[in-house]
């Protein structure tokens, strides 16, 4: 019991250090999974304790990248929950097609699996040339990997299955080259993608967009941070813009619940309406 309390204190100290030194605020993350990640980071970096991690954060500015990468361990797949991408293709893109320019924000893009999924959708619907995707994450290591578009070849089968189930028109392998144990997506797929660092817990409106995808990010936040981020999304969306959340995320019980209509609930697609 005493050990547990001591660890709690060390974790609180770590969060304060990270915020004071570098401006990253993890105080509003759901504690249980944050704690798991922090413990895993301690083990991976060979630190003797969470306090030792705090000291390294203070003493070694370069250590921050590794810390942020460890605290936002992004696990995703291409066309994850294929019905969502099928719904985007069938219901949302035809509406976005009426805009002269399409702006999309992928918030918390992690390793970029969904960025490439989105680019492929837009390309197949003939909309990519007038589209711009802003792909943001607070984790610079993940952003660099996202920009490379390289994934383990062992993922290819799952990605391809998802793509087909999402209504893919061709074969996913048309979009990547396999080499050794890796697959690399075509450079041309990111010609209209801007990868940028953005921290949802501290940064403001990023751009005015017609569609925001932010899937499986809000589950890591507490109520207050979730509401902050959802308000940010609301303020970033054009009138009648779309918000797509993760399959276990919802606007129910949030402060923006009344600013959106459910557009396709199984796909977690919401549509912003004018203030009532």
């Amino acid at each position: 019991m005493q050990d547990k309390d001591a660890e709690e204190l060390e974790i609180g100290d770590f969060i304060r250090t990270l915020k004071a030194r570098h401006g990253y605020d993890f105080a509003q993350y759901a504690p249980a999974s944050f704690k798991r990640r922090l413990r895993a980071l301690r083990v991976r970096t060979g630190a003797a304790s969470i306090s030792a991690l705090s000291r390294r954060v203070t003493d070694e500015p370069a250590f921050l990248r590794q810390v942020l990468a460890g605290l936002s361990v992004p696990v995703s797949e291409m066309f994850r929950d294929p019905w969502v991408f099928e719904a985007l293709r069938r219901e949302v893109l035809p509406i976005l097609a009426s805009y002269p320019r399409i702006h999309i924000w992928q918030a918390g893009c992690a390793h970029g699996e969904e960025v490439y999924s989105l680019a492929i959708l837009l390309q197949e619907e003939g909309l990519y040339d007038k589209s711009q995707i802003f792909a943001t994450d607070l984790n610079d290591v993940a952003l660099e990997e996202a920009a490379e578009g390289i994934y383990a070849a062992s993922s290819a089968r799952l990605f391809s299955e998802n793509y087909q189930r999402a209504g893919g028109r061709y074969s996913l392998s048309d979009y990547f080259h396999a080499r050794y144990e890796r697959i690399k997506f075509d450079e041309s797929l990111k010609r209209n993608v801007t990868f940028a660092s953005h921290n949802l817990s501290t940064d403001g409106v990023f751009a005015e967009v017609q569609l925001i995808l932010c899937r499986n990010v809000l589950i890591y936040f507490n109520d207050a941070l979730q509401n902050r981020v959802l308000q940010l999304f609301r303020d970033s969306l054009v009138h009648k813009g779309f918000l797509c959340l993760g399959s276990k995320e919802t606007l129910a019980h949030t402060t923006v619940e009344r600013d959106f209509d459910a557009f396709d609930l199984p796909a977690r697609l919401y549509r912003r309406h004018a203030p009532r």
């Binding site: 504690p31 999974s33 361990v73």
Partner: peptide, 21 residues
């Protein structure tokens, strides 16, 4: 527990979900 997500119990006896490894 929903499929595909880790399910955790927080100190305030609320659930949280994660898609960590």
């Amino acid at each position: 527990a929903p499929a595909g997500y880790h399910l955790l119990v927080e100190q305030d006896l609320r659930f949280s979900l994660s898609v960590d490894e």
